[in-house]
Amino acid sequence: MARIDYCDTTKSNERTREILGKNRNANIFRMMAHSPSYFEQYCRLGGAIRHKGELDPVVRELAITRTGILCEAPYEIVAHKRIGKNVGVTDEQNEALENWQTATCFDEVQRAALAFADEIVKLKKPTDATFNAIASKLTPAALVELQLSVGFYIMTSKFLETFGIDMQPVTEVVS
């Protein structure tokens, strides 16, 4: 159960209601709507991460889901396993993300991206070896996009857990 009430969207401005409608009034967004300007900018960056740029969507979603796992954010894990499946992440890959290091279903780029995500979440910064491994496989733009994706979803995971955001029904799309 959420730690504070969700925003009463009947009192929200038109732009906030519009963004909420585009995002199916998902609980995470109903909570963020308490701060309309932050909410709008959060959605702009989230949209860029998920729909623009050159980073392979499968790599992105594997890294995002792994971030949710490491941040212990079930809402994020469920949401991005579903989103990942829609962009080509296999069921086997989704199931293997907890212990990806021993799994054989990830290619070299995916493994390097997962190691990168692990170290961003767990360490102050990735080691040189991990950074160089992924940097040798991605363009500078894709590398920046991967780092920003992981960082954005660390923030998102922490937001979800801080406010105790309630899970969405399975049929709804979330963050």
Results as ranks from 00 to 15, higher is better:
6 Y>Q: 06
6 Y>G: 04
7 C>H: 04
7 C>E: 06
8 D>A: 09
11 K>E: 11
13 N>L: 07
13 N>C: 10
13 N>E: 11
16 T>W: 00
18 E>H: 12
19 I>M: 09
21 G>N: 13
22 K>I: 02
22 K>F: 07
23 N>H: 08
26 A>W: 04
29 F>I: 04
31 M>H: 04
32 M>G: 01
32 M>E: 00
33 A>W: 01
34 H>E: 00
37 S>V: 09
42 Y>K: 04
47 G>D: 15
48 A>D: 11
53 G>C: 07
53 G>S: 07
53 G>H: 07
55 L>T: 08
59 V>L: 10
59 V>F: 05
61 E>N: 05
66 R>G: 01
68 G>V: 03
69 I>M: 08
72 E>W: 03
72 E>H: 12
74 P>A: 08
78 V>G: 01
79 A>F: 05
82 R>I: 03
82 R>H: 01
89 V>C: 03
89 V>N: 01
96 A>G: 02
98 E>K: 12
98 E>V: 09
98 E>Q: 08
99 N>L: 09
100 W>R: 13
104 T>M: 15
104 T>S: 15
109 V>S: 12
110 Q>E: 14
110 Q>G: 12
113 A>E: 12
114 L>S: 01
115 A>C: 14
118 D>I: 13
118 D>K: 13
119 E>A: 08
120 I>A: 02
124 K>F: 01
125 K>C: 01
126 P>I: 12
127 T>C: 00
127 T>V: 04
128 D>H: 11
129 A>S: 12
129 A>R: 03
136 S>W: 06
144 V>D: 08
145 E>F: 11
146 L>W: 15
147 Q>A: 15
149 S>A: 15
152 F>D: 07
152 F>N: 09
154 I>N: 00
155 M>W: 10
155 M>Y: 12
157 S>A: 15
163 F>E: 09
166 D>Q: 13
167 M>L: 15
168 Q>A: 10
172 E>M: 13
173 V>R: 11
175 S>H: 13
